[in-house]
Amino acid sequence: MNDLLERPTPSDEPETDRVRRFDRASRSRIATLARHEYRAAVRSRVLLALIAILGLATVASVYIASVDYASQLADYNAYKDAAIAGGVQQVAPSPLALLALLRGAMEYLEIIGAVIAITLGYLSITRERGNRTLPLIRSRPVTAGELATGNALGAVGLIATLVTITAAVAVLCLGFIGHDWPNGTQILKLLLAYGAAVVYMTVFYFLGAVATARAKTPANGLMIALGVWLIVVLVLPQIGDTLDADNQVPGGLFASLGLVRADETTILAHFAGYETARTAIEAASFSKHFERFAFAMTDVKAKYVDFSLSQLLDVKRIELEWLAFYAVALTEGFRRAIRRQPTIPQETTS
């Protein structure tokens, strides 16, 4: 924290040099604050417990999917060998989608990852309040903007570490249990999906921090953030899913009526208004945008399997735009919340 103790001293140096030196000092202070945030966060036992739940759930979900995949892959390879031995020139490619095995892992990031991020945001604010370090930090030449940026970068670093570990565990499960390793394009798609996960969780980090910073009693702020999480992550997508006509009957309504995809499209054309309203409910959920992007990148949706990466990015650009919109809005909210934090110790009330 020594960087925070260095006060800039007036000098006769030229204006441009002074600005450059100030920028360098500012970056140094931000880096120090980010490191402080990162280190302090990993000391929380609750956070570690939540991360353990996420890790365990991820391993279980990928393990279950991979075991099933390995047997299907073995069947396909046996068929392929027999066909080649029988003189068949062209064998149909495997219909199995390796990355789709990560669906459960992505869903856990969507649900538990968001709770972890809210917890991080909450802890970030309460730590400074509880330890009364905020007045000390703000008594030094640290601006509210630098503090907000430092905290945010520390949190992003921690979230990125967490997501990287989750991704590594998932890929290792695919390779060792599923007996299939992702190729270059698949790795790139995974990077994009997990990159979106970092942005997604960062938005929830800001939500937790803003709700806590604005609440008189921090625990109430946490409750509000968790209430928002419940509606955004679980309730809105659930409503959208339930209103989907095809989800009303086990196995799918259209399949039970003996209709193919083209018939389904023809019939749904008569329900354009209903479908628009249903899609709007889903689109109101921030998590649904992450889910749509991540599922497209991990081949969960069969209709995207044959798309090239550039086609996928083109089709899913809207989801990225929504993610960026929420990220920018919540970043601004976080910056304002930090700026409004009282620099004089306050007594909290219930």
Partner: peptide, 16 residues
Amino acid sequence: QFTSGLRPTTSLNPIT
């Protein structure tokens, strides 16, 4: 998920 292989979002739909 452990006992019945139900994915998290599957648990959100009354019809599974």
